[in-house]
Design a protein around this nucleic acid. Structure first.
Lengths: 208, 208
DNA sequence: CTGCAATTTTGCAGTCTCTGCATCTTTAGG
DNA sequence: CCTAAAGATGCAGAGACTGCAAAATTGCAG
């Protein structure tokens, strides 16, 4: 059903994107961001430097953006979120929808370890990574607002939920990396969400 | 007691930083990031382009970094946090310490409105702004770990708390900007923290 | 297969960011 | 005043990134 096996053109396109992204991650993880030029990356990926910029708006993006279809993915996440039965609370529903995408961290462990290494070691990459793609933020806030029946322009809740969950995801990725990916990222995410939805009580003592 | 009135040298230095930061914010808010060059900013601030880079590592930083003494400020925040009596829960203590710095948003309303406008309209600026200064993250996690008696290398809690609070702060700033700064940022922050520490229950209904 | 149209890839020129280094000014303090 | 330290500049150069037009590929119909 999915995987419509697009034509050769599309396949090559995705392949090039992937080649650029993975070599970028690898090289930068090895040498550090400023010891790698766009020329290095494109050469290693077998395309011209100019082509590099046909795929990524900046060197940083090649390291941070894992998928060529980021837009569609987030779209699917939103749909899944909106399709979740009302019995499930909004935060839970959102997290569940997020998990699908998040699973690829455990699946592509090596690549993600390299990516996190690069990100942790470079402030510029760190900020790019921490932020969700600028364009996907608004639709997600919109979706949360719709499900909760709130006004995205007036109520703080939708924005707050998205931002804090984003923060949780980042915390999880950091921890995951510090453990060399030896703990399931998904499990860590579950743990984080429990804490978060419990109001961040101090592990040792009382809450609030 | 404070305000030791440093020498002329120091005063000029802060003044230049301030001039560069405010003109950068103003120009970028007016024309957009890529319609403003470093030369424009430095010219308007009355210094050479080379000097600009003595103050900021990048054009973006001039728009995003409000204070020349960012490091000391975060240091003070940490100290205040650690000095808070144990009766106050860790999350509360941290938020209270943060508030001191956060107050300047309401105090310098105009400048912050310009800054938020620039940030909202430009993805690059957005990511830089959303992330806390890379160097201040570790000390803060360290501080949280110390107060809670947790191991920052092993426990998820310190990182999670910092990340989610950071997310909350961002959400608040966005809302504040969308309301044209007509609502007190501090009040919004309080509201956000209440929601967060209550486990993000859906405003209309049940929680968790 | 063949040829045409739509896509991609490239090369090139040019602008702008950012850095290292040497030099010139200004301030701090005798 | 005079000198040393700190700061401001100018200059040259590496690299990121963009617009544009030419060249190579791929999709498809005939």
């Amino acid at each position: 059903m999915p995987e419509p096996v697009k034509g050769l053109r599309e396949r090559k396109r995705l392949e090039t994107h992937r080649a650029l992204a993975t070599t970028a991650v690898r090289l930068v993880a090895e040498r550090g961001l400023d010891q790698v030029t766009v020329e290095d990356i494109s050469a290693a990926a077998g395309v011209s430097p100019r082509t590099f910029f046909n795929y990524f708006p900046s060197k940083e993006d090649a390291v941070v953006i894992a998928h060529a279809d980021a837009a569609e993915r987030s779209q699917r996440t939103i749909e899944k979120f909106l399709a979740t039965p009302k019995e499930v609370s909004t935060p839970r529903a959102f997290v569940d929808a997020l998990k699908e995408d998040f699973a690829q961290v455990d699946e592509n462990r090596e690549e993600w370890l390299g990516r996190m290494k690069a990100i942790q070691e470079n402030a510029t990459l760190h900020s790019r990574a921490v932020t969700m793609n600028h364009d996907t933020i608004a639709p997600m806030i919109e979706a949360i607002a719709r499900r909760t029946g709130l006004d995205p322009k007036t109520d703080l809740y939708p924005t707050l939920l998205l931002s804090t969950l984003g923060g949780a995801v980042n915390a999880v990725l950091m921890r995951w990396y510090q453990h060399d990916g030896r703990i399931s990222a998904i499990d860590l995410l579950d743990e984080a969400v429990e804490m978060l939805l419990a109001g961040l009580p101090e592990p040792g003592g009382r809450a609030r």
